[in-house]
Design a binder for these strands. Structure first.
Lengths: 327, 327
DNA sequence: CGCTCAGATGGAACCGTTTACGGCGCTACA
DNA sequence: TGTAGCGCCGTAAACGGTTCCATCTGAGCG
């Protein structure tokens, strides 16, 4: 139904080859005929068929994004960054959500990979060799995950955690608890390493509460535990968990930050809207997404280039859930 | 580089036609050869190339989704619902984010529409004839938008608003303010109609505060205005705006719900984590997404079928930001 | 004036599938 | 025993572009 290059060629009185050259602009066409072709093309509403083009050139003009959970603001923002960067480059975007289940990833990749020129993959848990096997051949940059030998963009969350701990220390806190996220999570490791590094440096023991779901419900569990330890400050895996913990602590008659200081991680949009607004570690989620596209661009241009690992800085932002201990 | 049907055909000692038949399972192949073909295919890692298949059949096995803002939990959840439903049907998903700018929509649609068999389009503002012109030929179902003659799935937000108003009335509120969202927004109209309908029924005048950005910052503006009116209750365009309004009101020394009851709309995940948790109108966002895919499936199966408009119910959920007026 | 060369253009092969069409072998029936 | 019919399969023509190669047309130069 839509116009083909043949239609345009006939209308403009040229061959399909010339039409193709006018559009792909890599062959030589005279300025006059190019204008004529373009005029006829817009008149007929012609646009080169991506499938046909992909078949012969091998390039689809699309990239793929695989995330564990689109509804999680952390990844939603990343997706938004990816989307905008892709749009600026006139690339289409395939998205696949794996529902936090690693086992769905291979299937998702396989479905996508023949239709894209490159892949951005946020896989918090899958093992490196699994990834390797699955992507085979498709240029891939990892998002919020670093594996030696892979292209990746991630955030220096370990440093953010260290900033958090040093800040609490300087406020006078000495009993500080940490509530971890899902086991085996890559960024969970990062957090822990940053925290332990800083605590060794300060000669401080951190109270490790264990591993919790990174949700508000997980935070409720955390609150009950942290209150039992007598800690004056809590560092939470992410904002959502912190929100749950705070609401539970308040429900149990504690005040935040007077009785318990709380530092969260991610700085999602809602972190600043809560009462009190969350002190949290800001990670450049949006920028991570667009940066991943930039790297993917480089990688697709030269698949043999040596892998780059971009690490974005994080920043502790002080709002109202931290204060000096009052105990 | 990846194996083609020719490779498989050679390996299995058959023709490419037979390989094709074995995969598309609409031609006649004997059980024995089908098994042999499949065995060779998996051995070689063969999978029919979607682009080549699309070129000849016209079907890509993909659907497209266009949303104004992926980072907005309202649409993120919808996208998630769409994604899951698409995955269950073994369809790929193209996503385009238009950054809330109607003028980017035509471009987004054009980019997408040749690569998909159908489109799900959440366009809060664009005029109906613009949509018609742009999609031409691509089966489309509208999401959270109703236009006569189009397939669509939306939520009965007007009814939710009526529920909200009746609830406030029954609590004893008589001075009730409404803070609207973006002008020209379709779901904004829906809200207003629902509200006005119920207010006429209750013989109550609503204090209309005007039109605000549906963000926390917008909510701050709202708070200052509503405090000036002396209203005892506020109905806000969405949760985010309500959050902003509440935090501003609290900052200015008012208590919620004692001094001001607040009802929001959407029931995003964070609505239940705030302090106090938000009374809000729950709209089935996820379900709307998956329902849209189901409708699109029907539409793609029979493009001539008469349009269906699915309207999902909404439900007021009472949490802690509403109470009897204490003034 | 003839030759060379560069730039513009057309012809045709090709990308990897699907599918209409026809051939082949076999069974069943007259 | 001849043949109609059927199940299975191969051949080849599409689908809509891109690109190699050949051809043509002038311009420039000796």
């Amino acid at each position: 139904m839509p116009a083909t290059s043949r239609d345009v060629a006939r209308a403009a009185g040229v061959s399909v080859a010339t039409v193709s050259r006018a559009f792909s602009s890599n062959g030589a066409v005279s300025e006059a005929t190019k204008r004529r072709v373009m005029a006829e093309a817009t008149r007929l509403g012609y646009y080169p068929d991506p499938a046909a083009r992909r078949l012969i050139t091998g390039r689809s003009g699309n990239i793929g994004l695989i995330v564990p959970d689109l509804a999680n603001p952390f990844f939603a923002d990343a997706a938004k960054g990816v989307e905008r960067a892709a749009r600026q480059r006139h690339m289409g975007l395939f998205i696949s959500d794996t529902d936090e289940q690693d086992r769905l990833e291979p299937e998702a990749v396989r479905r996508i990979c023949r239709q894209v020129d490159g892949l951005i993959w946020a896989s918090p848990r899958s093992a490196g060799d699994v990834l390797k096997e699955v992507t085979d051949g498709v240029p891939t940059v990892l998002l919020h995950r670093r594996i030696p030998g892979w292209w990746s963009v991630s955030a220096d969350i370990g440093d953010g955690m260290a900033q958090a701990l040093r800040n609490l220390y300087s406020l006078g806190h000495r009993r500080i608890a940490y509530a971890g996220g899902p086991e085996r999570s890559y960024s969970g490791q990062l957090r822990l390493e940053g925290l332990l590094g800083a605590s060794a440096e300060l000669d401080l023991d951190i109270i490790r509460l264990g591993s919790f779901a990174p949700t508000a419900d997980g935070g409720i569990l955390v609150a009950d535990l942290v209150l039992a330890t007598g800690a004056t400050a809590l560092v939470a895996y992410n904002d959502t968990m912190a929100l749950g913990a705070i609401s539970r602590a308040v429900e149990r008659g504690r005040r935040v930050p007077e009785d318990l200081s709380v530092i969260a991680c991610d700085d999602i949009a809602y972190a600043r809207m809560t009462i009190p607004p969350l002190t949290t570690i800001q990670v450049p989620r949006h920028e991570a997404g667009s940066e991943a596209v930039a790297l993917l661009d480089e990688l697709m241009a030269d698949p043999q280039a040596t892998p780059k690992e971009k690490i974005l800085p994080t920043q502790l932002v002080i709002r109202r859930t931290t204060d000096v201990p009052r105990v």
